[in-house]
């Protein structure tokens, strides 16, 4: 894919990104673990004990895949948005722009960094979940591929947010007012079978709903949706967002005068 110097540049960006989020692990790796553990304890154990079964599984087992996916989505997105915006803010993005690095290598480096953090937090949360639920994996291929593609989609989304962000408020608006509601309404905590017909249709317009359900299918073997359609949608999102990122970089939006 890359010639030698491009591969070195790609590695350099990835190493820098991984160094960044591991250096500030108290802000990046630790908080999601605490938050998700609280979800396990409160919703899974305390509330879930009274709910009983959901979709044919214990409530704790039902929510674990959604919570893992929530961690992956939020961390992939926030790593790229905060890192790239921080580089814009400090103007250190100029280091990249003056160097002979093609736009696709710059983008790939940041996306790989975002995926690394998303997957890292996802792995930690998965290990945490083993204290609360007995998890088997119904389809390793589907589980791994959906988590990789989802973290890729949200890393690309974070990059677009960072390109347009002009201040620190701009990098928290989308995660707070768009991403979090979509995740919560994306079937993490409930099956859409419980919803009235109108809200069932509305839920099906939420892309995160498909990602969570596909991941849940990979682990539990049960899903509210067609898995093939979910993968098609993920690929379409990746193509669309990737094209958009490359176009923005080529135009120099947010980074060149």
């Amino acid at each position: 894919m890359f010639s030698d110097h491009r591969l070195v540049a790609f590695e350099t960006i990835v190493i820098k990104e991984v160094r960044r989020f591991t250096r500030i692990w108290l802000q990046t790796l630790f908080p999601p673990v605490i938050t998700i553990s609280l979800y396990f304890v409160i919703f899974g154990n305390l509330v879930g004990g009274r709910i009983g079964e959901m979709g044919g599984y214990r409530y704790m087992e039902f929510i674990v895949p959604g919570l893992i996916m929530m961690a992956v989505i939020q961390n992939s997105y926030s790593n790229v948005v905060s890192s790239f915006f921080s580089q814009k803010f400090q103007r250190s993005v100029e280091e990249l722009l003056v160097a002979p690095i093609p736009n696709y290598v710059i983008l790939s480096g940041y996306i790989a960094g975002g995926m690394a953090r998303g997957l890292c937090v996802g792995l930690i949360v998965t290990l945490m979940s083993l204290f609360f639920a007995d998890l088997g994996i119904h389809s390793p291929l589907i589980t791994v591929s959906v988590v990789l593609l989802t973290s890729l989609v949200f890393s690309l989304g974070g990059f677009i947010n960072a390109v347009f962000a002009n201040n620190f408020d701009d990098i928290s608006i989308i995660p707070t007012f768009v991403l979090t509601p979509l995740i919560y309404l994306g079937g993490v905590f409930y099956s859409i079978e419980l919803l009235p017909p109108f809200w069932r249709v509305v839920s099906q317009l939420n892309p995160i709903f498909y990602m969570v359900n596909t991941f849940r299918y990979g682990i539990l073997g049960t899903s509210d949706i067609d898995v093939a359609w979910a993968f098609t949608m993920l690929l379409l999102f990746i193509i669309l967002l990737y094209g958009c990122c490359i176009w923005l970089l080529r135009k120099g939006t947010g980074v060149r005068s």
Partner: peptide, 16 residues
């Protein structure tokens, strides 16, 4: 937030 050596080495990496 980067170390001095890292800033310079990273730039070298950007140039391949």
């Amino acid at each position: 937030f980067e170390k001095v050596g890292d800033v310079v080495r990273t730039q070298a990496g950007y140039y391949g």
